[in-house]
């Protein structure tokens, strides 16, 4: 496609009710709406990485002797707890502090 000459964008000329285009972006992390959090029992965890493999958001992080979900991203789906072959992960309800 030919290059279009582009004028500097002036948003003051755009009606607010025109269409859903967001130019002021705000952060919304998947961890913000979690109802339950995965809690790892470090004694049971054998570092088999099954949770790391299954996590849909790929938020599981490797620690020295265990694996753990990154809570900024973890949305609490519970797949890791379901798949853990050693039942090392419990889903614990999030409560407002």
């Amino acid at each position: 496609m030919r290059q279009q000459a582009r004028k500097p964008f002036d948003k003051s000329k755009i009606p607010q009710d025109l269409c859903p285009i967001a130019t002021e972006l705000s952060e919304l992390k998947t961890g913000d709406w979690r109802a339950e959090r995965p809690v790892v029992d470090r004694d049971k965890c054998v570092k088999c990485a099954t949770c790391w493999l299954y996590c849909p958001t790929q938020c599981v992080e490797e620690k020295p002797t265990w694996f753990e979900a990154g809570l900024e991203i973890c949305k609490g789906c519970g797949v890791c707890a379901q798949e853990c072959p050693h039942q090392a992960i419990a889903m614990v309800e999030e409560v407002e502090e």
Binding site: R6, F9, I14, L18, C19, I21, A22, T23, L25
Partner: peptide, 11 residues
């Protein structure tokens, strides 16, 4: 009103 533009990120 739009003109997708890498210099002006938008949703």
């Amino acid at each position: 009103h739009v003109a997708l533009d890498p210099d002006r990120p938008m949703g």
